[in-house]
Amino acid sequence: MASSNETAVKNIREYAVEAHERQQSQMDVDASDIETRLDATRRELEERVTQHRIALEELRSAPQGSFHTKPSDDPRERLAQLQILRDAYESLKPSVPFLPSRNSLLPSLLAARTIQQTVSGTQEAITATKEQLKHSEQLLRQEESNLHDANLIATAMANRIERLRSQKEAKSQKTPQEVAKDLIDAKQRQKERYDEEMKKLGQAFEIFVDEQLAGMLAAEDLGGPVVGDMMDVDDDVLAIGFTQQGRLKTSKKHISEPRRQKRLDEIWGDTATTEEGQQLTEIDAAGRELRELIEDLFTSLVGSRSTDAYIELERESAASRFLIRARIAQFHPKDARKLRLIDFGRELDD
């Protein structure tokens, strides 16, 4: 048994030395020699597989009672099973392990397969690590942004607390009369600021009506497209007129002045004439009608204690329809001749 082990170790050492010498030596690769060695390795493996298959068939053909897969409950039979296992291990112990022949390419093939698997696994690990790194970088940027926002909020809150503390200390040192005077001055400054903003908004509204909205309202009142469908509307366009389909007439001939004056009186009535008796154009009349309508709506809302302050419309004009489409005003649910401003402090009615 000892000689068999020494022989196996000696063969392994000789094979390792020979493989190392072949690795260190530089030799030209012969393709035919590699093919021959591959064939020999294949035949060697096939012979080994055949031997294992024969041994397996012998085990399968053995009597069923000669070997049990489970330990027996009978102590004697169990002892016999253990002796069989011991004899099997003892018989395998001195056997020489299977080693490929000296000219076999099996070690090289196994090494190449191991290297290929290692390279493939490394590439997959690199790809997964890149994805994980990209995700981590995104999280880091998000957390840095959150930290920046949190720092800004903390700074703002600290400043606010400091201002409130200073104000509280300042108020504690003032008399009630001085505190009341400061509140009145603050409210007055706030009112002045609101009045200034209201003035700017009013000027912007007047410019918007005069330069853009009034012409489109006049075109819609004259049977043309609704507000927004025709952006450039001037007196020459209105003087030509529109077809029954709401399109601009192809003829460039203007409507006669008497007919145009009659049309103004029928649509806008007294709105088309100033207090001095001067006749306005269609654009001026439409703009004046819109301003008067908005003024009446505001007056009705301010003068009423409730938000259900409706005004009576003399006619359904382009101005009223525009306010409805712009969600600025709404009709009475039961009377389409009544109109009121929408209370923007509440939810819009459906």
Rank of each mutant, 00 (worst) to 15 (best):
V96F: 12
S101K: 03
R102S: 12
N103L: 08
N103E: 15
N103A: 07
P107A: 04
L110S: 11
L110W: 05
A112S: 10
A112I: 04
I115C: 13
Q116L: 15
Q116S: 15
Q117A: 15
V119A: 12
S120K: 09
G121W: 01
Q123C: 12
Q123E: 09
E124Y: 06
I126P: 04
A128G: 05
T129R: 07
Q132I: 02
Q132L: 10
S136R: 03
E137W: 07
L139C: 09
E144A: 15
S145C: 11
S145W: 05
S145E: 14
H148T: 11
N151H: 13
L152Y: 05
I153D: 07
T155Q: 14
A156F: 06
A158V: 04
R160G: 14
I161H: 05
I161E: 14
R163A: 14
L164Y: 12
L164M: 14
R165I: 06
S172L: 13
S172T: 10
Q173K: 14
Q173T: 09
Q173C: 09
K174A: 11
T175R: 01
Q177G: 13
E178G: 01
E178A: 09
V179S: 03
D185N: 10
A186L: 14
A186Y: 14
K187D: 15
Q188W: 14
R189E: 11
R189A: 12
Q190G: 10
K191G: 05
E192S: 13
Y194I: 12
E197A: 14
K199G: 02
K200E: 11
Q203S: 13
Q203T: 12
A204K: 07
F205C: 06
E206W: 02
F208I: 02
V209N: 01
V209L: 06
D210K: 08
L213D: 01
L217S: 00
A218F: 03
A218V: 02
A219S: 06
L222V: 01
G223V: 01
G224Y: 02
G224L: 02
V227E: 00
G228E: 02
